[in-house]
Design a protein around this nucleic acid. Structure first.
Length: 293
DNA sequence: ACGCGTGCCTGTTGGC
DNA sequence: TGCCAACAGGCACGCG
């Protein structure tokens, strides 16, 4: 389930395989996986991939039309300019891989993009998604910049200072775990990194944000950044079958203190870890270590 | 306006 | 051993 570190890793490993290539054709195996921009699909042909970027959990490919000098009047905040964007949300089971140009779609292949370099067919970009929650949108910059989900995304935790992270998390009446998962407050945090950052900050996930001191919120901000930074360094977490765009597994799952460790002993105090449901999500925490507010 | 519960989807897991 | 309910979870949506 790609969260910020996984999407960042996928973007980094995908970029060298696709930047500079031109899309020659698009294969839509499951129309519903193309959530918007069907009318723009013909415009992809001849588009040259300029960059791969990430915003929250969204992964974007920015295209320039063939021969363009690169003047793109409508900017998309937080992303490099492009004439047209391919925007992916991988949700739980989406993945992106580059295969040979004649590779056949698999059972879970939803979209394929043929890529050429210097006029020669080079590869085929696959969007696979077992559970079909993920999607791809083809968007002109003005549509992208006006897309409600995109415009309501909160700031990037790794480029926001601790005071502003504490501010983003600290208001309202939510439980702190729900606030961490709220993409309008901070973009990119999912269930894994919410639980892991709460453990490291010694905060119980069900605590109401209003009951947390400024000190606790600042500690959580620092823990969240540290966890995300380490996970990016370790190329994300591979549980089940997550792989980056180069086919490599991540390593951060080896550093999990709580996620997926229901009933196991806390690595700090050896108390059994408690499983509960907070904000509609499976939540694991240590009832002994996570008490500070 | 905000917070919360539910549905979407399919492969895997675990209980009986 | 086999069946099947429960589970995984990000986000859209509807309700209060």
């Amino acid at each position: 389930m790609p969260e910020l570190p996984e999407v960042e890793t996928i973007a980094r490993t995908l970029a060298p395989q696709v930047v500079g290539r031109t899309i020659t054709s698009t294969h839509i195996l499951r129309p519903a996986s193309l959530a918007a921009g069907t009318a723009l699909v013909p415009a992809l042909a001849g588009g040259r991939i300029q960059h791969v970027a990430r915003r929250g959990k969204l992964l974007t490919l920015g295209l320039a039309p063939a021969g363009s000098a690169g003047a793109f009047p409508v900017p998309v905040p937080g992303l490099p300019p492009a004439a047209l964007y391919l925007v992916f949300h991988l949700k739980m089971t989406g993945s992106l891989f580059v295969h040979s140009p004649d590779a056949a779609p698999g059972k879970h292949t939803r979209l394929m993009f043929d890529l050429c370099r210097n006029g020669v067919a080079e590869s085929r970009l696959f969007f696979n998604d077992i559970r079909t929650f993920g999607y791809c949108r083809v968007m002109a910059p003005e549509d992208f910049a006006a897309w409600k989900f995109f415009t309501s995304l909160g700031s990037e935790p790794l480029s926001t200072d601790n005071q502003n992270i504490a501010k983003a998390l600290g208001h309202g009446k939510m439980r702190i775990k729900a606030a961490l998962l709220d993409q309008r407050r901070l973009a990119g945090v999912g269930n894994i990194y919410a639980d892991e950052s709460l453990f490291r900050a010694k905060i119980a996930p069900q605590t109401k944000t209003a009951d947390l001191s400024r000190t606790a919120l600042l500690r959580l901000a620092a823990s969240l950044k540290a966890v995300l930074q380490q996970a990016v360094r370790e190329c994300g977490s591979s549980i089940r079958d997550y792989r980056d765009a180069a086919g490599n597994a991540g390593a951060f799952q080896n550093s999990f203190m709580v996620y997926g460790r229901k009933g196991e002993k806390c690595k700090i105090c050896e108390s059994p870890l408690q499983c509960s449901n907070v904000a509609g999500r499976t939540t694991i925490h240590c009832p002994r270590c996570q008490k500070q507010s």
